[in-house]
Design a protein around this nucleic acid. Structure first.
Lengths: 392, 392
DNA sequence: ATTAAGTTAGTTAAAATGACTAACAAAGTT
DNA sequence: AACTTTGTTAGTCATTTTAACTAACTTAAT
């Protein structure tokens, strides 16, 4: 056999060019070969060859003719978004969100279920299994067309090992989560930290679209951040990046290993509820605690105003620290920070202007409690490209 | 003419492979074509062809035969480190460090000069011009063989514009620094933040060698950090990443824009000197302030012990915040932090273990006040590869 | 309405490039 | 003499490029 099977970087270029064409087709629906040649800076014959190849493989389709711009009508091409699908799943407290999406990342069907109490590894996996079966059944989606699952978990997830290495509040620590779920479903699985997935969600489908360098900050039951650099999640050496709940903000106290972080212990929802007891006449456990404080502050209750100021101030400490280190182009705020109102935002921006040299553009998260789920979808899409199924 | 001049990614592979070979030659001096084939995972004929090409171009030389390992003796190859050179320059307070180095980054000649007072743009450029002329004269290095200059400046440098966008303590802000120096020297120049260059220095020649993900923390006249991700400096959206002097640590006070950062105002050398007045019987302005405090603490002076504890504690706040965000594999401490002693280091590590979930390996900087200069050299080497001169 | 000229889209053919395998020569060692 | 290791030569394959088409359409003068 002669000249077969290049081992080095020889095959790389074709792969890059194919991915480039696919990328453009994902971004710009209904374009011609000629358009693709311009967009990818490849020659027209080369694009034609690669496109024809991918049409045969079923990844792309010709979908009729476009308008002439003074010459022959272009043959419009489209990515076959429906060819395969992925699953997104997010464990958040006591609920499990599940969804099936197409290759575009559009949700086809979605469900939120409450988990049985007490939860352990087995029941959790059972929930996923049953939930997925229900989704497949209801949507009529063929399981054979699923590429894999993106799974969001709280705590520090070890993507390559498929385990959770640090999560004081859950019972997942150390378990071979990924392997067990893969065995149960018969599908490949990636796991990822929940806040990282929210970041990914906002990046792909939310307010972060088009911003390849951004930081996402979440303040809720926990406090965390997600970091995107050059369109990639930055995970750090032990995948513990963005764990800003462990910043030293507020009283340090007798902090020892295994507990929540200092910032989190002082300014997460849990902590704020405690502080608010003295301020609110009656507390509604169901609705946003910050909103209740803001309402009281607007009613003229001075103690509420002071507490709100204190909360905003310390959250801004976190933002200032985060932006000092990262200098992102865009900062997305989410969780309970969504309820601080215009006055709160204004305060934060004023403080930042006073404290740091480079204030990023600040936006509120736009996807609500869907962010993580949408991120899980895109995490799966990145981990299991449709080519993986085709190249067998 | 047919089939000439590919515009797309066609030439990319060859470039990657050539760079791969050069990289191996920089790392492993005196290797054969066969060794390179193994190291780069390319075929022997391919390596031979690329090597021959680069020998003609003058980048590589054959330097005799090696020992036989049971067959024909290998022809050893070497990167022509001496073919070209670069200049490194660092402005630090009132001194200017200048050096010429070869393509390996080895300093050939070096000089530190005091700047005339008061300094302004013109005198600074004059100093560089005169200093470089002296270096060239003394070393006999041919100016035509210089590829360019890497220049380190305090403050937030705008690499692409060649200006300094934020530096309260110097008069550089807004000036077209790079253009003016390029015009004066007739050589291309890159500017970069001083702490980033120290980071680069430690990465290439210091304790950070082999660690492509690290964070460097400097506490001296100012406080700052440098971040390396995948062997690249991370600069942020407005090149203000790592400006941790602006973290909110210690009393906030009446901070408004234009002043130094909160952390810097509370725990830089300037601030510590102020605090130490009450503790030290007499202060030596020339030597390390932290060392003086440590000495007094070791003498049993309780106030000094308390101050040292306070300083270490707050520096650790900064470290905790930094590592919470970045989760680096390695953290390098420098500046006055070098003088805290073993007890201080032990304290820091204990606190970190208590506060954050992922404690990085911590090392002391190893290059002393050469770090920035060495970084400037490597900055220039990255910005102006020797191929830039050859490809004319 | 016809027709020529110009444009745009897509294909075909030939050349160029760069990497690979196979086979061999050169120069050793055991 | 037999094996090894290094380096080269020759031939092949994959991929992309340029150049030169064909196809199909628009514009506008005749």
């Amino acid at each position: 056999m002669i000249g077969r099977g290049q081992t080095g970087n020889a095959k790389l270029v074709k792969h890059i060019n194919r991915e480039g064409i696919l990328h453009q087709l994902r971004e710009n629906p209904r374009v011609s070969r000629a358009d693709l040649a311009k967009l990818t800076e490849l020659s027209r014959p080369c694009v034609s060859a690669l496109v024809d190849e991918m049409i045969v493989e079923g990844m792309i389709s010709e979908v009729g003719l476009g308008e002439s711009k003074g010459g022959r009508k272009p043959i419009l091409l489209e990515y076959n978004f429906q060819a395969y699908g992925v699953i997104g799943a997010v464990f958040e407290g006591s609920t499990l969100q599940l969804a099936i999406a197409d290759l575009k990342g559009e949700l086809l069907i979605q469900r939120t279920t409450c988990l049985p109490h007490p939860m352990n590894g087995e029941t959790a996996i059972q929930s996923i299994e049953q939930g997925l079966a229900a989704l497949l059944n209801e949507s009529g989606f063929d399981k054979a067309r699923l590429l894999g699952m993106g799974l969001g978990l709280p705590g520090i997830t070890q993507r390559s090992e498929g385990t959770v290495s640090y999560a004081p509040s859950t019972g997942w620590m150390g378990l071979p989560v990924r392997k067990e779920i893969e065995a149960a479903l018969g599908l490949p699985v990636v796991i990822e930290n929940d806040v990282n997935l929210m970041t990914l969600g906002e990046f792909h489908k939310g307010i972060g679209v088009g911003h390849s360098n951004l930081v996402y900050m979440y303040a809720g039951t926990g406090i965390g951040a997600g970091i995107m650099i050059d369109g990639q999640l930055y995970r750090g050496a032990k995948e513990a990046s963005g764990e800003i709940g462990y910043m030293v903000i507020g009283p340090v106290g007798n902090q020892t290993k295994g507990e929540y972080g200092v910032f989190e212990r002082n300014y997460s929802v849990r902590a704020i509820r405690e502080k608010a007891k003295a301020v609110l006449p009656s507390m509604d456990e169901g609705s946003s605690i910050v909103k209740q404080i803001v309402d009281q502050a607007n009613n003229g209750v001075e103690a509420a105003q002071a507490l709100l100021d204190d909360i905003c101030r310390h959250w801004t400490y976190g933002i200032a620290n985060l932006t000092s280190v990262m200098d992102p182009a865009l900062l997305i705020l989410s969780g309970e920070m969504l309820h601080i109102g215009n006055e709160g935002i204004h305060k934060i921006q004023q403080w930042l202007t006073d404290w740091v040299p480079s204030v990023p553009r600040i936006e509120m998260a736009s996807l609500g409690d869907q962010a993580g789920l949408i991120g899980a979808i895109h995490c799966a899409l990145e981990a299991f490209p449709s080519t993986s199924k085709l190249q067998r």
